[in-house]
Design a protein around this nucleic acid. Structure first.
Lengths: 218, 218
DNA sequence: TTTTGATGGAATTTCGAAATTTCGTGATTT
DNA sequence: AAATCACGAAATTTCGAAATTCCATCAAAA
């Protein structure tokens, strides 16, 4: 495996989980020293990360970590609802038992973690695990939609969404609501009711939407 | 302006309008000679193009032009309907007179070209103009949605869609239907009826959808 | 005080070549 | 004949440095 891929994965993880400040300039030279490689290699990695929207490229001005803003969170949430609701509805139609099994497993994993998070005083050992399990659950929801394009598009949106919330979501104040909402999404999906599932996905994400213009899901 | 941007624009245009064969490997070395620059520069441009999905990157295997397939066209169309319908509905609510003016202008431009295309025997002088005007119209539809994220996401999908159809759409057999459909989208949008507009956008793109699972727009 | 302009250091971009990996061809083995 | 292997050519990846551009600082002018 080329070394570049290691750097890519390391930086992606860091960009999504509190390793960089929002709006900060990415110092390619510093990273070059940290990873002990050439400037071109870092530059390439940053271009690949910009594919996911985790850094922004500006001509002659290098790369930046996107600013955090309520508007961007609203927009990303809007798209998540649109794509996850659609992808899940398709999965319900086409997924079959195999998908239901995967979804149940993903939810069980997530649910287990969230229950422990809910009671733990020191949440730090669970943070990374939770990020992974939450991503897994939402990816699994749409995984049987049959559209690789939708999955990739959603992945980009999800990465940026997670990045926007990487600081405040570490406190897990929302966790007890989340447990209930994830359960409701699972139940609705298992019951085969696409419209209800769309609604539950919307409800789950609604706290990140700004009030003025709601996302229409019905 | 850095030279790289020229190369980027040149290749993007070529990738969207018949300059490469679907599935073809992109010969970085050939491009390096053609543009008389270094390998790294070409490599960077290709990474930037992969952000739009116009080339696919595979580790140690270079870049390829995506294969054309009915499935991919279906998926891209599905997403176009989802994103354009949503973006247009938002534009109707938030765009105001300025947006209506831009949309009318874009439609007028497109309509003028399509009328001429409909009668011309040699359509080649209009091909590039039409690609530009058609893109402009559909971009304008969603331009007042208020979500830069939605606009960028749609742009990627639109680029890939156009690339998938770059060969067959050069015959313009569909042109008389298109004239009517673009008009209907404009009329619906101007009337302020979001649901009808969604329907018309769906109808316009429906010929690219595979029959089995239709896109739900209502 | 505000604006304009020069200057030097730092960051970005581009280059050409070296190191590594892939891929096609044909020989050898089973 | 089919499969495996070795080899060389071609492509990809990485490097380190040169060329260019940006940006903060400070001086000079309005």
């Amino acid at each position: 495996m080329p070394y570049e891929t290691d750097i890519f994965d390391t930086l992606r993880h860091r960009l999504m989980t509190n390793g960089f400040e929002h709006g900060q300039k990415v110092r390619a030279e510093h990273l070059r020293q940290e990873f002990n490689c050439s400037a071109s290699t870092i530059r390439e990695v940053l271009f690949r990360l910009s594919t996911l929207g985790l850094v922004e490229f500006q001509e002659q001005r290098g790369f930046r970590v996107p600013q955090k803003s309520r508007e961007v969170i609203h927009e990303l949430t809007h798209l998540r609802v649109l794509l996850e609701a659609e992808g899940t509805a398709l999965s319900i139609r086409r997924g079959g038992v195999a998908w239901e099994a995967r979804l149940t497993a993903a939810h069980h994993h997530l649910s287990h973690l969230e229950t422990r998070l809910n009671t733990a005083t020191d949440k730090s050992p669970f943070v990374d695990l939770w990020f992974g399990a939450e991503a897994q659950f939402h990816e699994t929801l749409i995984s049987a939609c049959g559209s690789q394009t939708l999955i990739e598009t959603h992945h980009r949106v999800y990465c940026r969404f997670r990045q926007q919330l990487m600081v405040e979501d570490r406190e897990f104040d929302f966790i007890s609501n989340n447990i209930r909402q994830h359960q409701q999404i699972l139940d609705a999906a298992m019951s085969g009711d696409a419209a209800l599932t769309r609604q539950k996905i919307h409800d789950h994400l609604a706290r990140h939407l700004m009030p003025e213009d709601e996302v229409a899901v019905a």
